[in-house]
Structure formats: structure tokens, C-alpha cells
Amino acid sequence: LRQRHVACLARSERGLGFSIAGGKGSTPYRAGDAGIFVSRIAEGGAAHRAGTLQVGDRVLSINGVDVTEARHDHAVSLLTAASPTIALLLEREAGGP
């Protein structure tokens, strides 16, 4: 079961505080899956403080732009754009009992 949710992050002077992996033109985060995933969350960064991202979340869109088939460098450029806030649509595998 997959759950979707939106995370809104305000960029700090240190950026957004998370890294992505995967996407076309880069090493897959999961074998056989060209999706883009949250690969790291920086301690004390914007994403960590927001508490809405988890490592392993699939990134579906960035500020309304679909990145499900995107190249890695395109997703990075969307994240590093000048916008002071970033809205992410994420998909998470629902774990637990």
C-alpha cells in the first residue's frame, strides 16, 4: 500500500536539507526503478525540522512539475530554483503492521 502526501518546505540559508537519488541519467536508487527518491535528510535542516520527509520517499512532483519520468539533473534544477518555498508530492510505502 502506498500513501501520498504533500510536503511544503521553506528554504533556509543552508538550503532544503535533503538529497535526492535516482532519475533518468543517474544511478537508480532502487534497482530497475528510474524514480527519484529522498536519499538523505540533513540533521537540523529544513526537511528535518518539517518532519514530513522520510528517506525512501518517492518524489512525484516538485512545485507542480511531474518528475516521475524526469532526469536527475532536471529534478535537481527544480529543487535549486530561486523559489523560497518548495512543494513536494511524495509517495511512501506504508509500512508497519
Rank of each mutant, 00 (worst) to 15 (best):
L9V: 15
A31R: 12
V6T: 10
A50T: 09
I36T: 01
E91A: 04
L88C: 04
H72M: 09
V65A: 08
D73P: 03
P97A: 12
V67A: 04
S61F: 07
A31N: 15
G51C: 04
G15C: 06
L9G: 01
A46N: 08
A94E: 15
S83K: 14
L89W: 09
R14D: 12
A94L: 11
A75L: 00
F37Y: 13
D73C: 09
L78S: 01
G17Y: 02
G22A: 01
G22P: 02
E69A: 12
G17M: 04
G25C: 07
V38S: 02
L79A: 02
A21L: 08
S39A: 12
D73K: 08
S39H: 06
S77L: 09
A7Q: 04
R40W: 13
I20K: 00
P97E: 14
A42V: 13
I86N: 04
L53P: 07
D73F: 05
S39W: 03
I86K: 04
L9S: 01
T68V: 06
F18A: 03
I86E: 02
G96R: 12
S83V: 13
S61K: 15
C8I: 14
G23Q: 01
I62L: 01
S39N: 12
G35M: 04
H74P: 00
N63P: 01
I62T: 00
F18V: 07
S39F: 01
A42K: 15
T85A: 08
R30K: 15
G15S: 09
E43Y: 11
R30V: 15
I41Q: 03
L9T: 03
A21I: 12
A7F: 07
E13V: 07
A21Q: 13
H48Y: 11
G25A: 05
T68H: 06
D66E: 04
I36R: 03
I86R: 00
G45N: 08
I36C: 00
G17C: 06
I36S: 00
A87D: 15
P28W: 07
A21P: 00
I36F: 03
A34Y: 15
C8S: 10
A46I: 13
L60W: 02
A50N: 10
L90S: 02
L79H: 02
S77M: 11
C8M: 13
A42T: 14
R58D: 04
A87R: 15
V55R: 05
A94S: 14
G45H: 07
T85G: 07
R58T: 02
G35A: 06
A42R: 11
V65H: 14
A75G: 02
G56Q: 01
V6Q: 10
H5M: 14
A47M: 05
A75T: 05
T85K: 10
A75W: 03
R40E: 15
G17T: 04
A34F: 14
G95E: 12
D66Q: 05
I20W: 00
H48I: 10
V65R: 08
G23V: 00
R4V: 09
G95A: 14
V38F: 02
H5S: 09
F18W: 02
S83G: 15
L78D: 00
A34H: 14
S77A: 14
G23N: 00
I86F: 14
E93T: 10
A31W: 13
G17E: 06
V67G: 02
R49K: 15
Y29Q: 05
A31Y: 14
F37P: 00
L78N: 02
L1V: 14
A46F: 07
R71M: 09
G35Q: 01
D73Y: 06
L53Q: 01
L79M: 14
C8W: 12
G56P: 03
A46M: 10
L88R: 00
L88A: 03
A31E: 15
A47D: 06
S61G: 09
S61L: 07
I86L: 11
L16Q: 05
N63T: 01
G23D: 02
G25Q: 05
L60K: 03
L79Q: 02
E43F: 09
E91W: 01
G51T: 06
L90M: 05
F37V: 02
G22L: 01
A42Q: 13
G17D: 07
R92T: 04
P28R: 07
Y29M: 05
R71E: 15
L9M: 07
R2I: 10
S77N: 13
I41L: 08
V59N: 00
G23L: 00
E93W: 07
G51P: 04
V65K: 11
D66F: 01
S26D: 11
Y29E: 07
G23H: 01
P84V: 06
G22S: 01
P97S: 12
G25V: 02
I86T: 11
A82V: 09
G44A: 07
F18R: 00
L60N: 01
V76E: 11
V67E: 00
G45K: 05
Y29V: 06
R40Q: 15
T85S: 12
G64H: 05
E13Y: 07
D66T: 05
A21V: 13
V67H: 03
H5Q: 11
V65M: 08
S39R: 04
G35C: 05
